[in-house]
């Protein structure tokens, strides 16, 4: 889902629910299991979620290039690859679009959502 669609959908849902209050931020840290990297099809950690404790060189089609928010809930420790690098492949021929340290989340990306195709855990960015 594109960001535009997702925001429009979220706004519409919120209008229905509240009669028109401003978009509220998520209630807490994104709902992503400890030790996992998560990505959602919609902005603000909404919609269907994919999560991994390891690497994935080719995301499944439902989330590939549909990713709109991300969270690194990795747990650091010596020798642990706790940073996550997200790569675009289909559209850019493969470059790193973002690198997240544990606890860092991205609710949306105004320029480059729906872009991810793979990720790897790394010692650092």
């Amino acid at each position: 889902m594109t960001l535009k669609h997702s925001l429009a959908g979220a706004a519409a849902a919120l209008l229905l629910a509240t009669g028109g209050l401003a978009l509220a931020p998520p209630a807490g840290a994104a709902d992503c299991p400890s030790g996992h990297f998560c990505t959602w099809e919609n902005a603000n950690f909404d919609g269907q979620r994919a999560n991994w404790s390891g690497d994935d060189g080719w995301w499944e089609s439902w989330i590939a290039d549909e990713d709109s928010s991300w969270a690194n809930h990795g747990v650091s420790g010596p020798g642990v690859k706790d940073h996550v690098k997200v790569f675009s492949r289909a559209h850019q021929g493969g470059h790193m679009t973002i690198c997240l340290a544990p606890g860092q989340e991205v609710g949306y990306n105004g320029a480059a959502n729906d872009n991810g195709d793979s990720h790897t855990w790394a010692m650092s960015c």
Partner: peptide, 29 residues
């Protein structure tokens, strides 16, 4: 690993207080 108590205790609750929008468009929180 899904334990919501653990998630909150580790990663925090409420709105995220730190935020930085990168030139690439991503707002990291």
């Amino acid at each position: 690993t899904e334990d919501p108590r653990l998630q909150s205790a580790l990663f925090g609750t409420g709105p995220s207080e730190l935020s930085l929008t990168l030139p690439t468009g991503a707002t990291v929180t």
